[in-house]
Design a protein around this nucleic acid. Structure first.
Lengths: 288, 288
DNA sequence: ATAATAGTGTCTTTTAGACAATATTGT
DNA sequence: ACAATATTGTCTAAAAGACACTATTAT
């Protein structure tokens, strides 16, 4: 029998002990545009500013678990979709309270309704990402965000370094659509080829030829599985309904967990589950 | 004047305070094979086992800074090459000492000599990666590592979860060669097309046609810059010497730092520096 | 019938891959 | 001259893209 050991028993005394937050870049496609889930901060620092949903990791908690908990607390629902780790920021010069490490997660999900206004944050809501991203180069485009004067937010109108984290999340999402089947994560369980095309168009900000797209999507192995059913009611010819193909030749996910709590074992969100045989050709490519 | 504030002043008391390590997957190409830098652990846990170089982040230290410090301490030299963040592991079920967060970094570098045997680790040395990776699927290949019996190492003969981290690093490296110009990070400042081809061949484990490769490499914009010089002395026709092209249309690296220590400002290693216009075509592709 | 969207056929352009042929060096 | 490696040229095959045309529904 081992007594409940105090954490960090044998860690060298010179090691830093850092508070760790998780922040979630939750993306969805809504009205043919990419949207991100943001909360209005109800506490300092950055009280009143928009921020990514997130918060501190609790003792004994896993990172992905913390991400899902924060998301649930701040939306009132348990969000669907694909959750994966994005990257880690900090610990210096990003939080006025002092050194804080932040592990960002990326959620790609079909639009889900936001119910609840959390305790320390005004309700969460979907916001179009485009005005929050750094202006594209080339011919100087429209005005960014008016940046309400007096606002302490450093960039893009978001608290902390969240504008940068958002930009990184969007870039990751754009890249993943190209060489993985993850576009389906933005769709409900059953969807049409046109739904899927609108995901690519919104995330990449391009127009794709519906005819060539249809052929490419339906003939790419491991991408779509026919349900046998079709849409009805809308105008025009009914469309075939698909769902995401079941784990296409998934890579053997190294290290399946070892001596851990069996059941909450190795974080499935952290295992690049049905992810990308790297050396396969891209699934989809934007127009040249 | 602000007094030196105690760290974590206003952090909620329920937040976990975690020790954080950095671990570095340092890869190089040596004798036409991908190698990783490993140290033999001189202290518990996993004393005597091979491990990735790394250690605890110190108070006031940045992540990439800690990665470079550990690397320097354990090799005796300041390694060249491209350093980028890989991903974050933990904090549960990965260190017998208790919950520890580990932020892994990836270094892609030309082979550099290892000088020094650090204090808490036997000397660092290059090891071929192939026997350390999980057996590829398909027809069951050769025997992995004999796994010296009595060794507490969980997998691949490496301490902690380092076999998994290594696998993730190799996968990242393989992917990056495909759509970025990072293969040059494995080369010395001046190199030939053949040198570069051997990088691809070693990392991907394939053979590439030297003639088609040469054309592709030299005609891809933003990849190579001619030095005007050529090799000499070797057998055969002298080859043109190239260096990596200077930042090809680099993306505007969001958030250039704000109120930080000017000089050690925003970590350049953490900024995806000259990284991949995502929507560009891949630079190179492995054979089908 | 008309409008609207879904999906197929076919041609053109681009890119990748195979491989002959030429170029330039050391021995 | 011969061996060895570098580099260019040319043809073929595969993939991407443009776009006419057919299919199937609602009104």
């Amino acid at each position: 029998m081992t007594e409940p050991v105090s954490p960090h028993a044998d860690v060298p005394p010179t090691a830093a002990l850092l508070p760790v937050t998780v922040d979630v870049v939750a993306l969805t496609v809504r009205d043919d545009a990419l949207h991100v889930l943001l909360v209005e901060r109800g506490v300092d620092p950055y009280r009143g500013a928009l921020a990514l949903p997130g918060g501190f990791v609790l003792p004994g908690e896993r990172l992905a678990q913390a991400a899902r908990r924060e998301l649930a607390e701040e939306t009132g629902v348990r969000p669907p979709g694909h959750l994966e780790q994005l990257r880690t920021y900090g610990p210096l010069d990003r939080d006025p309270r002092g050194p804080v490490l932040s592990v960002a997660y990326l959620l790609l999900a079909p639009e889900f309704g936001v119910v609840h206004a959390g305790s320390d944050a005004g309700g969460a809501a979907w916001h179009p990402v485009e005005p929050l991203l750094p202006a594209a180069p080339g011919p100087s485009a429209g005005p960014g965000v008016p940046t309400a004067s007096g606002d302490p937010a450093p960039s893009g109108g978001l608290a902390f370094d969240h504008a940068r984290i958002l930009a990184d999340g969007v870039e990751r999402a754009r890249a993943k659509l190209e060489y993985s089947a993850l576009a389906t994560a933005f769709c409900p369980p059953e969807f049409t080829v046109a739904d899927l095309r609108r995901v690519y168009e919104a995330v990449w900000g391009v127009r794709l030829d519906p005819r060539n797209f249809s052929r490419k999507a339906t003939t790419t192995p491991g991408f779509l599985a026919e349900t046998g059913r079709t849409t009805s009611g809308g105008t025009g010819r009914p469309a075939t309904l698909y769902r995401a193909a079941p784990n296409p030749a998934s890579l053997p996910t190294t290290v399946p967990a070892q001596g851990a709590t069996p059941g909450s074992a190795a974080d499935p969100d952290d295992a690049p589950a049905s992810v990308p045989a790297v050396l396969d050709p891209p699934l989809m490519r934007p127009r040249r």
